[in-house]
């Protein structure tokens, strides 16, 4: 299958900024006297405005990867650049949405979103407008004065997305953003995220456990394996947005990726023997 650049996909707003490049990323954690390799020689190039989904088993270093790009962790080898500039520390150009919404419980929804603007040198009115626009973007108009505990899980996560977008970052990183939500809300928010991405046009890198979600949203799906975390496969999804969940192409790709994720070559011998035993 040939790769169709996202800029040729109908309905997509073209952006010139937001190219993320990871080269030879190595990251390890030290547990007492043991070294645990989390990422090994990880390289990935993301085009401006592209939506890249990353799937992989738990512990393959997916979340660590996003934290490195976000700048929450600076201890790694290799280079990460955004539009050719090496990233150092956190920046308003790189947004991050966590699995938990991480809204502050004592602030109203609009105060939570406005917190993201405290480092911006713009007028009060401009800030208020940005906040209002982004509340509208995620469909939470009318809930400006609500506290997080008054919102449903899905609404709180939308508010978190609004907060991460209010600075109009060049790249938005999403760490299993819908992982804690029920299936129905998840499907709904996937559609919402697609709409927001098409409207905003920023680069998005999303981590997920859900292969269907990865394929439904991603221009490209990166499959990772653990120990150490590395890319084993990349799948281009050449379908226009917004997509049809029932598309046979998505189903075929899903089977392909699931087969790869579940058929771990270095499976312990005992597991293999158990399966054999069942056959007899």
């Amino acid at each position: 299958m040939d790769y169709v650049p996202h800029s040729q996909i109908p309905g997509h707003k073209v952006k010139q900024t937001g190219a993320v490049s990871l080269k030879g990323i190595k990251k390890q954690f030290n547990f007492k006297d043991r070294e645990l390799k989390v990422l090994s020689e990880f390289s990935l190039d993301v085009q401006p405005g592209e939506f890249v989904s990353i799937v992989g088993p738990s512990g393959c270093g997916k979340s660590t990867l996003l934290r490195l790009i976000a700048g929450l962790d600076d201890t790694y080898d290799g280079t990460i650049t955004l539009d050719g500039q090496r990233v150092a520390g956190t920046s308003l150009e790189r947004g991050l949405v966590f699995q938990d919404h991480r809204l502050f419980p004592w602030m109203t929804l609009e105060d939570n979103i406005a917190l993201a603007l405290t480092n911006r040198q713009i007028s009060k009115d401009a800030k208020a407008k940005l906040v209002a626009d982004h509340i509208a973007l995620v469909g939470l108009k009318g809930f400006e004065k609500a506290f997080p505990h008054q919102l449903s899980g899905g609404m709180a996560q939308r508010a978190a997305i609004a907060r991460s977008l209010v600075n109009e970052p060049k790249v938005l990183l999403l760490d299993e953003p819908f992982g804690a939500l029920d299936a129905l809300t998840r499907v709904h928010l996937q559609g919402e995220l697609q709409r927001i991405w098409l409207a905003q046009g920023s680069t998005m890198i999303m981590i997920t456990h859900d292969v269907e979600e990865a394929l439904y949203l991603g221009d490209r799906v990166v499959v990772m394996q653990a120990n150490p975390g590395r890319i084993t496969h990349t799948v281009d999804v050449n379908l226009p947005h917004p997509r049809d969940r029932a598309s046979p192409v998505l189903h075929r790709l899903k089977d392909e990726i699931l087969a790869e994720l579940t058929n771990v070559p270095e499976a312990p011998n005992s597991v293999v023997r158990l399966i054999k035993g069942d056959d007899q």
């Binding site: 956190t90 991050l96 502050f104 917190l115 603007l117 405290t118 480092n119």
Partner: peptide, 21 residues
């Protein structure tokens, strides 16, 4: 981490996050 992501100035960290928390 949230405060760091949005590069909130230290007085915002103290007045809006640490004190209420």
């Amino acid at each position: 981490e949230v405060s760091s992501l949005y590069r909130a100035p230290w007085w915002v960290l103290i007045s809006k996050i640490l004190i209420p928390a």
